[in-house]
Simulated assay, not measured.
Amino acid sequence: MNTPVRVVAAGDHFVLPALITRALTAELPEPPPDVRELMLGWPLEPFGPVAEVREASDAENPLIDALSDGREVLVTQMAPVTERVLAASPGLRLVVVCRGGPVNVNLDAAQLHDVRVCYAPGRNAAATAEFTVGLLLAALRRIPQAHDLLAGQRSWQGATYYTHEHSGLELEDLPVGLIGYGAVGSRVARALAAFGAQVMVYDPYARGEIHGLRMPTLDALLRRSRVITLHARLTPETRGLIGARELALLPRGAVLVNAARGPLVDEEALCDALADGTLSAAALDTFAREPLPAGSRLFGLADRVVLTPHLGGASQAVAEKAARIAAAEVGRWARGEPPAHALC
């Protein structure tokens, strides 16, 4: 292609428009792309349903304006690629979403308008795996609670956590069960193995060698695990995967960590298990409803839970990887090569 690719880089305060432009320029140096940058409000402004798409910034009009001169390519994380946007942008041929799935794109409308849609799988696998291990360590050793006592209340009573009754568990020789062994779960398994944990894995879809002991059933994994970490995809089959029955199979005083998807766990059953001592602790980055409602029972269990607001994928490297993956797809499209990650 001898003419510059004309792109709208609809970034936000995480995947910055400038990161997208830089990645596109590196991917397409001659001639350099003609990039129009658009800044969307996420995460400083909330996302949600926009028209018929999910998890998008409410920015249909600014996006239509940015695409109005017949630009062929849109690279974005949160822009709402709705039927209205597609119908108003007849020159658009490619949309690349800087996320693990293009939930902000109307795929049926994209096909109707002959627009190819690509995405960026694996962009946050390393970050989420590291965050999961961090949550696990924080829960096992009561790090946030001790910090709050000392830094927040200026109290040395955190020394209570040095008593045998209240001191935490260590990872070495600890039986840890992983539910799911994809891009994130496999990284967590390797990290825990380096700590010396006894890693066990349940994933009926995992193939090949794994780092740890493969368990034949979920029940078998739960009965042997002092800690469980969740790494499964959210599907109709896995929604509510861990409920009251499953929690009751764990050894008393076990710990649950979830940085995958909130609805994998029955939150009411989890709170019951924390309240009655079935679980000694939980660490959660995702929840059944987000933002976490002010009336959630989890806030009343603060001495036993570590709560973070869905930050597992929040690293600078994730934003940079997402921009590079997206730019590579634009480069393939410009050169007439097959895409690596396309849904339509």
Rank of each mutant, 00 (worst) to 15 (best):
A220C: 05
R36N: 09
L150W: 05
A334T: 02
S280H: 12
L274R: 09
A51G: 01
A326I: 04
A220L: 15
T160I: 15
Y162A: 11
P90H: 03
D303E: 15
L264S: 15
A18C: 14
L135D: 02
A126T: 14
S167E: 05
G182T: 07
L178V: 14
H113N: 05
A110P: 08
Y161C: 08
P291D: 00
G101M: 11
L19M: 14
P43T: 13
V201W: 11
L343K: 12
P293G: 07
E320N: 08
A206D: 07
T160N: 13
P90W: 01
E267W: 11
R207H: 15
N258L: 14
V265P: 10
A138D: 04
L136D: 00
P309N: 05
F195Q: 02
D148Y: 00
A138C: 13
R214Q: 11
T163C: 10
E209S: 12
P31K: 12
P293L: 09
L86N: 06
C344F: 06
Q145R: 10
A110H: 00
R93M: 01
S89E: 03
H341Y: 12
G48I: 09
R116A: 15
G11D: 02
S280F: 06
A232E: 10
A79I: 03
V201F: 13
L67F: 00
S186W: 14
A326E: 04
V257L: 00
V35K: 13
V96A: 13
S167P: 06
F131S: 00
L311K: 13
W333T: 14
D148R: 14
G122I: 03
L112H: 01
A323R: 14
R116I: 02
R223K: 15
S167C: 01
I242N: 02
L234R: 10
T229I: 01
R214W: 12
Y202V: 10
P29N: 14
L274N: 14
D219V: 14
G253F: 00
L218E: 13
E337C: 05
R304I: 05
L218T: 13
V75E: 00
A254G: 15
V8S: 06
V75W: 01
A9P: 05
P32Q: 08
R36V: 13
A314Y: 03
R245D: 13
A79L: 01
T278L: 09
R261I: 06
Q111M: 08
A326S: 12
P90G: 02
P263H: 04
L230Y: 06
L94Y: 00
E172N: 15
G180Y: 09
V85K: 15
M200S: 15
L107H: 03
